[in-house]
Design a protein around this nucleic acid. Structure first.
Lengths: 350, 350
DNA sequence: GTTCTTGTTGCTCATCTGTCTCCCACGTCC
DNA sequence: GGACGTGGGAGACAGATGAGCAACAAGAAC
């Protein structure tokens, strides 16, 4: 398809019919009565000429562009953004849509983000996906509301916009349960210091899961540091340098893979071998880290691909009138965070 | 700007002038003679109404969409893709263009990649950026030629399409020179086994740089493995387990940061401390790894952001007739790979 | 057996989407 | 009657869409 410079009129002339007929045939207009012979002729000619409709003209007339705007915060900083884009792109492509991707920074002014949305609206996108790079409450540009939109990986401060987010609690639960299942009873948590939902939810799930296993979740050791490698290192040093040996955790649940990476180093320095002396679970499944640490890190995957695909899918449904987004806007949709088993968990010694 | 549903006619009516006049004023058409009063009036009204031109109609009329297609191979696999997109997006945005991003897989069939290009052409993008995720020769879809295009991070097998690639040799040279400058004389190279240009070019630059320093580059030790962490580990084990201690390298140049990560582990196992016993330089500057290893890895950065920006910039120049891409197509443009100094290099012992 | 009505089938015409741009019109002042 | 200053009209871009027009057949009325 799509030899530029061939338009519907060329096809009409070559097939010896009117433009209208070509349009009717190619769009399979239901009420159009056209003989099978003519239909064949039109289709054959269109094919031969390599005709593809000019989507601009089409969009102008039908008031539908088949384009979705994807504004993504900090696209380059994390590999997560790529997975969201990939999921959205594949879902969109499967339904004949394309993505206009615009990068914005999480620290960008509201005006600049508003300008990005405006650019998308000027292009008459059918809907907008607004993706943030970590699950938190965001303040949305006001003009976002003028077109169907879905939030990816965050919820809006004002509420009432459809959103998909990861199941932080479920993921944390899965991580802790994996440690419990391996036989661990003294489990520590290296938490983040940022005030984001994930921090609170992973912590509460951590405690709750321990409580449900008959342990004292509220007494379980937690050390908080910034969620980087260095923070993980320091939190782990503190936690693993406890006075009483019998008190020391045999397993660590880390807020993310980067902190887990720091914990690996702390363990190495303290002469603790992973997983024999210390089991570790991470969170995020940043493959570059998780798969490449030694031993490879068992961790919880964030469903970025799935969130991107879910968002695109439902946005398109809304655009096509198959769904009412406002109904879904009441509560964010929560997608599971599966455990990715590698080699960093085993039974505790003895 | 861009309150949907407000069109130029609304502005014309509200301002009490014709559509033509509004168009003339807003586009600052040079030959249009319109009184300052009228101009003010039109602009004020347009502002008040929140008018923004419908880019679709504009594009249909002017035969220019202000959109660039970016087809990116394996967008989600590496963070590099994000940097290319970011560079391209920022350069494009600065000139009023937007990007339609389409993902494709490096292993996708030529037809499927051709279909992606076709979708872009149907949307009448002004030009196409074709980004691959590692610098190699690619076979391009034939329909790419029908619109100005630029290859990012690779060169075409057929040649004669403008391309930007990283300066592999310069980067390797910088890495080796950093080791030489620190005083190292016995330097090993952990190379990749893939048959890509980078493999050959980094190797030849490695040898050449040593030769120029008065050393015997051709005798310098090289171990090749797949360019992953595990490969780096194995190559480093072999290289660092040489019979003769006096023969052992005091510094390692690694094909990429992942291999360097493997080398770190090998060094740790062999009781070699980095950088005191062994200096290491990587390549790629994958921040997640390079900045987070301990000690932080000195490495060579690939100019992905810069390549994306360069490509968008020159593509737009070509679209706007300011540049003739075919002139640049003769030789790929080469962008520098700067050394990123961290903590993994120091002077050799004694 | 002819003419008229009615119904189908097959396809086309006119109009619309929103914007740009070439060309023309009108008035005024020398 | 030009020159100048101001502004408007009518396509054109490429396609979508619904009303409507021929052509023909079958049945009805005479």
């Amino acid at each position: 398809m799509s030899n530029k410079n061939i338009n519907i009129k060329d096809v009409a002339v070559a097939a010896g019919v009117s433009v209208t007929t070509v349009s009717h045939v190619l769009n399979e207009v239901s009420y159009a009565r056209i003989s099978p012979k003519t239909r064949d002729k039109v289709r054959t000619v269109a094919e031969e000429l390599g005709y593809g409709p000019n989507r601009l003209a089409q969009a102008l007339r039908t008031q539908r562009t088949g384009m979705l705007g994807l504004v993504s915060e900090d696209i380059a900083t994390t590999p997560h953004a790529g997975r969201i884009i990939l999921g959205a792109d594949e879902a969109a492509k499967a339904r004949g849509y394309n993505l206009i991707v615009i990068n914005t920074s999480g620290s960008a002014s509201l005006e600049s983000r508003q300008a990005d949305i405006a650019a998308l609206l000027d292009r008459r996108v059918d809907g907008i996906l607004y993706a943030t790079m970590y699950h938190r409450n965001v303040e949305l540009p006001a003009n976002l509301g003028s077109v169907p939109s879905v939030l990816v990986d965050s919820v809006a401060t004002g509420g009432n916009i459809t959103a998909v987010i990861p199941d932080e609690e479920g993921g944390a639960r899965a991580a802790v349960e994996a440690l419990l299942a391996a036989g661990h009873r003294r489990i520590g948590f290296l938490n983040n210091t940022d005030d984001v939902p994930a921090t609170r939810q992973r912590l509460s799930a951590f405690r709750a899961t321990l409580n449900e296993a008959g342990l004292d979740g509220d007494a379980a050791p937690v050390e908080s540091e910034p969620s980087e490698v260095q923070g993980g290192y320091e939190a782990a040093r503190r936690m693993l340098s406890r006075k009483d040996r019998a008190d020391m955790p045999t397993a660590l649940f880390c807020y993310n893979d980067r902190m887990a990476m720091g914990a690996y180093r702390a363990a190495a320095e303290l002469g603790l071998s992973i997983p024999d002396d210390l089991s570790i679970v991470g969170f995020d499944d940043q493959e570059l880290i998780a798969a490449n640490l030694y031993p490879a890190l068992t961790t919880v995957a964030l469903p970025h691909y799935e969130m991107g695909a879910w968002a695109a899918e439902h946005l398109i449904d809304a655009v096509e009138g198959k769904t009412d987004l406002s109904l879904m806007a009441l509560h964010p949709t929560i997608l599971g965070c599966p455990l990715v088993v590698r080699d960093s968990i085993t039974a505790p010694r003895q």
